[in-house]
Design a protein around this nucleic acid. Structure first.
Length: 856
RNA sequence: GCCCGGAUGGCGUAACUGGCAGCCGCAGCUCCCUUAAAAGGAGUCGUCGGAGACGACAUGCGGGUUCGAAUCCCGCUCCGGGCACCA
């Protein structure tokens, strides 16, 4: 029986690092031979996991921002989880990836802040609470405890001294505080309008939460409802949200930037005033094509707008209009968004005047015009807008071509949108589109009937929710004073106990029924008043949580601006692409507001963004109902934490989806065992001088470390793992049939493997480190220094092509000169043979790697 | 409909700035160890032809640029994602 010093023993004798972290080297463990069953079978995942977790708890290798820490700072953040049950495969992937980045920068000598918290408010907790008749608090905090335990076991490199839960009063107090600051600045306001309503969850939804006409959470078909609600004025920031994307180009995925750009949807055009017969005030419309004004043959107002109702009032069409409006309200959002739906509408028996020629054109109401975009009214140019043409053809309205085109829209039914010389357009005749727009804007400006204007698709952010489990809106409604802010010193407005409250959604917030809680004295006049019963959208919580991690317990402010200057903006943000618009747009908005308040000195919160893919099973998203759900706990029990983490990282590029059916966790474990075994075979002492070691292996080691670093920094984690596997293979060969286990190069190589693996497989890496005779922890061992001299190849394979086809390979020195290489290549027998006597036309030489001989 | 991506062996992938296509794995096959299995180890593994040396073909399809293209350009096909009556 070979004597093997267990890692636990190593820890027992060496777990007291000195100030320098240097500890007397443990005796080099005796190497088991390859036929020794103990050496082979000792990769006992369970035992290794049990051994190191308590050690790390003690050492806390990932605490950040400690006094006296001189390392440069980096802030790496994973999107925080929602506590809906235990961690699942998706978390396992996301946190494995975030961990590689965070652990890498620690090894590179940075003081890395890598915090975690819980996005703990929200509907699922409330729905579970209703279903089981319990308080959402209990459900939420139990799940958090479970996830926290799983994360610890999963060995995430989080700084556990910085945990936050958004459902804690000491957190949401600052949601309220920030809300009040926005309120003071006019950026939070209340208005009545038709809002998205989820009939299932019985609450309103922000525009961003309506996906394809359905509720983002529960998939119910969204309807409209008229309600008075709180909004945040994100539209004030539309231009900055667009323009500041310049800062993110290249460091955020293009896809996300494109989605945000489209979502904000800036349109450049003009506002034009149309006089309405029998109305004092003209009506303004927005158009991107002021050049087609001469082609405007009718006028349409949104059926559900106030303007439509006003224009219809008292006309012979009023009754018909009302019936139509009722019909429009019945149509669900999902149907309404179908552009292929036949056009409907009502002629309001009113007329508008085209400002360019005073032509009297009919005014219609239709639902194809949106009440909340532009001004809710349009000039219809049927010849050059498909929707207007469809409408014109349905109701037999005139079509006038004003941009010359090959086909006639009225005949073909296809509106022409191409550029071309304008016709039937008075002063614009003969001009092209851009010249016409310019000319028209001049004319409009001169007459005071219009001007250049910009419009956005983006709407203000509706944040009121008629649900219990969220941040109470800190406003008091006083019959005398109106909307009164809760004074700062009375924050937080805490949620009442759920006990005795019926949380079942009924369209009004359950908080309103908490009579004692809701009834307060007005802070201004002292008279009886009521609290706002709604809670905030949980996206408010997550719009600034990254700042709270600086000091989650801070009582005097949401965060300390001085610390924010040190740590932010976030160097690397990691999370799913599902938040491409919602969370990332809102966070960017909040950051700009905080910047304007002078609280932060940056305008973009996330300098770099990595969107990891999803974990699917057999091609589709995992779900219980589909029957393809793979429980993470089962996988961890079967293969161990490290194998799962490694499998996640090695499966492919991080932004691609992983099909778990294609992944071999068993293979990952096999590799880890191979690597681990090496650590017990190293037969040179700790601190041995590597420079005397085998040069061939040393080159592989240094090249691997160098390539792995570059791969990690460019998010090619799978490549970093592949290179590490090559190094392990090379060490295996060197031990078995090369320089042998006692060569110092073997120690250097295996130590490098331990550090490389510390990013992905922390348990295995730490155990290897101990077997190599080092005290814990490998996580702070430092990235191996690469010797540039060892990156230079001793000899290079030069490819010799004839007409682009490889005909020979030469082994040459790396600094061979071109003439010499050319000569060598032309002398190759196989080159001569394939030239077959033909004359050489050119020889392209790219020393030292390639020669291409081109025959005549 | 509009806007983005993508397509490489049986599978996941790799290939620096245009320079040996297929690194590293998974699965398969052959062998070693074993009474046997498991575990472990060695080898093989794009397609076609050939006993073999080797040759031809090959990165979705068709063209182009180039001494040279998985990579750049043009035109298709298919797949995925986002937006979708936004004037």
């Amino acid at each position: 029986m070979t004597e093997i010093r267990t890692a636990a023993e190593a820890v027992a004798t060496t777990s007291e690092p000195t100030a320098e972290g240097v500890v007397a080297p443990a005796a080099a463990p005796a190497a088991p031979t390859r036929s020794d069953p103990v050496g082979r079978d000792a990769y006992d995942v369970e035992a290794i996991q049990a051994r190191w977790l308590p050690v790390w708890d003690e050492l806390e290798p990932f605490r950040s921002g400690l006094p006296g820490d001189e390392r440069p700072k980096k802030y790496i953040l994973d999107m925080f989880p929602y506590p809906s049950g235990d961690l699942h495969m998706g978390h396992a992937e996301a946190y494995a990836i975030g961990d590689v980045v965070a652990r890498y920068w620690v090894q590179r000598g940075f003081d890395v802040m890598h915090p975690i918290g819980w996005d703990a408010f929200g509907l699922p907790a409330e729905n579970a609470a209703i279903k089981r008749g319990v308080d959402p608090r209990g459900w939420t905090y139990e799940n958090i405890a479970q996830q926290k335990a799983s994360m610890r076991r999963y060995a995430c490199s989080f700084d556990w001294a910085r945990v936050l839960h958004t459902s804690d009063p000491q957190y949401y107090r600052w949601n309220q505080w920030l809300f009040l600051r926005l309120f003071e600045r006019g950026l939070a306001y209340r208005k009545s309008s038709a809002v998205n309503w989820c009939p299932q969850d019985q609450t309103v939804l922000a525009n961003e939460q309506v996906v394809g006409g359905r509720c983002e959470r529960c998939d119910a078909v969204v309807t409209k409802k008229n309600l008075t609600q709180w909004y945040l004025r994100i539209t004030d920031y539309a231009d900055r949200l667009l323009d500041d994307m310049q800062q993110l180009a290249g460091t955020w995925p293009d896809k996300v930037l494109t989605m945000q750009r489209n979502w904000i949807g800036r349109s450049i055009g003009a506002e034009v005033q149309f006089a309405i017969e029998g109305r004092d005030e003209p009506v303004t419309v927005f158009t991107t094509r002021p050049d087609t004004l001469y082609g405007a043959t009718f006028f349409v107002v949104a059926a559900d707008s106030a303007l439509a109702a006003e224009l219809a009032a008292g006309t012979p069409a009023e009754k018909e209009f009302r019936a139509y409006l009722d019909q429009v309200k019945q149509v669900s959002e999902i149907d309404r968004m179908d552009a292929g739906r036949p056009k409907t509408g009502v002629f309001l028996q009113r007329f508008a005047f085209n400002p360019v020629n005073d032509e009297r054109i009919p005014v219609w109401a239709s639902d194809y015009v949106l009440a909340d975009y532009g001004t809710g009214a349009i000039m219809a140019v049927p010849a050059h807008d498909q929707r207007d043409l469809d409408f014109a053809r349905t109701f037999d309205l005139p079509v006038r071509v004003v941009v010359a085109a090959e086909s006639d829209p009225l005949e073909t039914g296809i509106a022409t949108a191409d550029d071309g010389p304008h016709v039937n357009s008075g002063p614009l005749d003969g001009l092209d589109k851009s010249a016409s727009i310019e000319r028209m804007l001049e004319i409009m400006a001169a007459e005071g009937r219009g001007r250049a204007a910009v419009n956005y698709r983006l709407r203000d952010w509706l944040i009121s929710r008629q649900r219990f489990w969220g941040t109470p809106i800190p406003i008091i409604h006083c019959p005398a004073c109106g909307e009164v802010a809760v004074p700062d010193d009375q924050l937080p407005v805490e949620l009442p106990a759920a006990e005795g409250l019926d949380l079942t959604p009924k369209g009004a917030s359950p908080l309103g029924a908490a009579t004692e809680w809701a009834s307060v004295d007005c802070p201004q006049c002292g008279g009886p008043a009521r609290r706002d019963p709604d809670t905030m959208d949980t996206f408010v919580d997550s719009s600034w949580y990254f700042l709270r991690f600086l000091n989650p317990a801070l009582e005097s402010a949401p965060f300390d601006p001085a610390q924010a200057r040190e740590w932010l903006p976030i160097d690397q943000y990691v999370g799913g692409v599902t938040h491409a618009i919602l969370h990332l747009l809102y966070s960017r908005f909040f950051t700009k507001v905080l910047h304007d308040m002078g609280l932060v000195d940056f305008t973009e919160p996330f300098s770099r963004l990595l969107n990891q893919g999803m974990v699917v099973m057999n091609g589709s998203a995992m779900s219980k109902s589909r029957g393809n759900l793979v429980p993470l706990s089962d996988e961890l029990a079967m293969h161990g934490v490290d194998a799962i983490r490694l499998a996640m990282v090695f499966a492919g590029p991080p932004e691609d989806d992983i099909d778990w059916a294609d992944v071999s966790a068993a293979g990952a474990r096999k590799f880890l065992a191979r690597a681990w075994r090496l650590s017990a075979e190293v037969a040179s002492p700790v601190g041995v001088d590597a420079s005397t070691g085998n040069m061939e292996l040393r080159r592989v080691t240094h090249r691997t470390v160098d390539e792995a670093a570059r791969a990690v920094e460019s998010f090619r984690f799978n490549v970093a793992v592949a290179r590490t596997m090559e190094l392990v293979n090379a060490i295996r060969r060197a031990v078995d049939s090369g320089c042998g286990a006692a060569d110092p190069a073997i120690r250097e190589a295996v130590e490098a493997v331990a550090v490389l693996l510390s990013l992905v497989a922390p348990y295995t890496a730490e155990d290897m480190w101990a077997k190599l005779g080092h005290p814990p922890t490998v996580f702070r061992a430092g990235w191996p220094t690469v010797d540039p001299a060892l990156l230079v190849q001793e000899s290079v394979t030069c490819v010799v092509q004839v007409a682009g086809k490889v005909r020979a390979r030469l082994t040459v020195g790396p600094d061979i000169d071109e003439a010499q290489l050319r000569e060598l290549a032309l002398a190759e027998p196989s080159v001569v043979a394939s030239l077959a006597g033909r004359a050489v036309l050119t020889v392209v030489v790219r020393a030292p790697k390639l020669v291409n001989v081109v025959p005549g």
